[in-house]
Design a protein around this nucleic acid. Structure first.
Lengths: 220, 220
DNA sequence: ATTCATTTGTTCCTTTTTTCACAAAGTGTA
DNA sequence: TACACTTTGTGAAAAAAGGAACAAATGAAT
């Protein structure tokens, strides 16, 4: 999940800042549930591994949403961040590959929280095609183009075996899908205006091992 | 999955470099399967969204493994990277939370490829405790400390609801777990010598939406 | 043996990201 | 109104990461 996989001309702000905005938004919504109306940068970052300074700076890339000497109005900031991130309207997404991970994602209730709706699911496996999971019918991957076009879907989650992932990404971009969340352990090549975000558990685990190893070596 | 979540004094190399090494290693192993013995930085990076230069630089942080005018010996480089990353020996890992995602991970065959073995699985749910998934018996989370200590496990994957994640992380670090892969959408606080890697699908998806939104706004 | 073509490893430079520090702006009190 | 106290927003400095360019090393060809 990385910087360079996202092809963008010029941003004017760190690519990581967007992830942090997402983090802030989630925490602000928790605060709202607790009926907290006002929060300072120091308070909200207390539990977020982010400095108050970075919080303010991240926001400042998009505008000044706080009040000096006072802090931030929770409800107002949520509206602003929803606007910035685009999570104020529903996004339809297609899921490609209904294997173990794919099924888990299909059954995942949490997407609705941030306004994402899995609108289609596809697989090659005859066994799976036609079955309904969490209200979504698994469709034949042959119908990928037709159904995604029909439903005007612009985002996809790919969790297929790595061998077929690139081909699928090509098919998806061909028909106008512009955002792909890729779980396959492969570096996708896409056109410049398509955004790929890789969730690569293997890399994460190996990084963890690397640091663990460092600790153990240090102890020896 | 991020820089600041990993607390390290001074590294001398970009934190992202480790993830890339992991990527290189995976691709080198594919090349070895195809009986390719020699590869240049230009060739290997061709399909990786990495410049040849960055490849060489990433390696150079740890040593000079190539031969000028020639390239890199695939087999030899695999050994070196396995050594650097620590994937040359088996790592036992505990899985906490056998919900949808947890089950998917338990059934995931791919861990063995990079020498990770899920050695324990825990849950609170009486229904799940005692059941065996992919050869692993789900244990009562009350026995977390005892069993992890007994098996000398140093790494854990947490995929529980966010509310209980911090408490679990505290318990884990308390008994010497030093690496945590966290799937819960929460920013974990841990002591300085524990490495946390967050896989946060929500953040990734929201970032995707943000960029998609940018494209659509541009089209209007 | 010499020349030419390759490809690495590394220094130096550029860009990006983070951190610092403080002026500006707001609140409350007397 | 004046003053003390907060907290934001931001320009400037520092740090980190990335990229370019090239010398050094290697192999092949003549």
């Amino acid at each position: 999940m990385n910087k360079k996989e996202i092809h963008i001309e010029k941003q004017g702000f760190p690519s990581e800042a967007i992830k942090r905005l997402s983090l802030y938004l989630r925490n602000l919504k928790k605060l709202r549930e607790k009926n907290i109306e006002l929060i300072s940068s120091a308070e909200i970052t207390q539990f977020l591994n982010v400095t108050p300074c970075q919080f303010r700076k991240d926001l400042s890339y998009f505008g000044g949403f706080g009040k000096r000497g006072v802090g931030y109005n929770v409800g107002k900031l949520i509206v602003e961040l929803d606007n910035i991130l685009g999570t104020n309207k529903e996004w339809k997404i297609a899921l490609i590959g209904v294997g173990r991970l794919g099924s888990a994602l299909l059954s995942f209730e949490g997407f609705s929280e941030f306004n994402i709706k899995i609108a289609s699911a596809f697989d090659v496996d005859e066994e799976k095609i036609g079955r309904t999971l969490n209200g979504i019918e698994v469709e034949n991957i042959k119908d990928l183009e037709r159904n995604i076009n029909k439903r005007k879907i612009k985002m996809a989650i790919i969790c297929t075996p790595p061998e077929i992932t690139q081909k699928l990404a090509d098919r998806l971009t061909e028909i106008g899908v512009r955002g792909i969340l890729n779980f396959a352990p492969i570096a996708l090549k896409t056109s410049r205006d398509t955004f790929v975000s890789n969730v690569d558990m293997a890399c994460e685990l190996e990084r963890l091992i690397f640091f663990l190893k460092g600790v153990e070596d240090g102890q020896k």
